[in-house]
Design a protein around this nucleic acid. Structure first.
Lengths: 147, 147
DNA sequence: TAAATATCATTTGTATACAAACGAATCACC
DNA sequence: GGTGATTCGTTTGTATACAAATGATATTTA
């Protein structure tokens, strides 16, 4: 039975390099590097998502914005703080609900949105450059089913 | 020209929910939650990767281990510290290169590996449950091309 | 209305993740 | 043999990301 080739018990059935979780981390890591190469105003992917979502959905509360981009309350706090420091969003107390902090794109943020979308298209193009157009559609379709 | 339907300039060409980077973050987030549900010894995905890689490749230096799982030197430091605190790895000064810190699986770590692989298989199964077997193979193949 | 529940924003603590800088040790090359 | 470049591990600083707890405010329900 022994064919002389090295054989590590169990390993043939489980290789880290074939695991979806490991590969997802690597893919997102690579994407983040590409994003940084293209980033306007040193925006991070999460800050970018917040701005794009605000442009798609309009002003909303801080926690609501977090839910709209799948960022929890503790994390969105810092994200909004940094967008505010960059003067890309404005903050207002909601008169109807004094718990809420209404977040809006500032004039500067609004002005930036078209450029952000162009940047996003470049990042997506580079991220997917190893795939043929047909493969890209298949990949995005399957990725959406996973989320 | 105006058909009365809402139309947001530019938005039809760029939707956050269709972007590969955004979807990769969501997919990895979901995977991490599934991982935590199954985790032995409160291991994180990165700690898990380090242990599996040690079992695949044998002892190595700290920075080398980081490179083997795509974790930079600053990050692998903390990962190894926490694995050491959990007594899953042992540390040795390399006599041939006094800069190097040789990391090995401890007896406890070695004993745990088979269970970790079983856990990893469960996590992968749940992560991919929305895909048919054929789709899983296609997805993993495309994901590997992206990394 | 009063009490129980829920939501909002915040804070603290832990764990990646990367950039930049550092001293110590090693290596490459002249 | 010496020197310049590289590598090793470490530290500091910034930015997600999540858990758990908190006080203030709203909402639900009894």
């Amino acid at each position: 039975m022994d064919n002389g080739r090295p054989f590590v018990k169990d390993e043939s059935e489980y290789r880290l390099d074939d695991q979806v979780g490991y590969l997802l981390r690597l893919a997102y890591q690579r994407h983040t590097l590409i994003f940084q190469d293209h980033a306007l105003n040193n925006l991070t992917p999460t800050q970018f998502s917040a701005l794009i979502r605000l442009s798609e959905c309009g002003p909303c509360s801080q926690n609501q914005l977090g839910r709209l981009i799948a960022v929890d309350a503790a994390t969105i706090k810092g994200v909004v703080d940094r967008l505010y420091d960059k003067k890309l969003v404005t903050l207002e107390k909601d008169a109807n609900d004094r718990r809420r902090n209404l977040i809006s794109l500032s004039p500067k943020g609004l002005e930036m949105v078209a450029g952000l979308r162009a940047m996003g298209r470049s990042v997506t193009e580079v991220t997917l450059e190893a795939l043929q157009p047909g493969e890209r559609a298949v990949f995005l379709g399957l990725l959406k089913k996973l989320v």
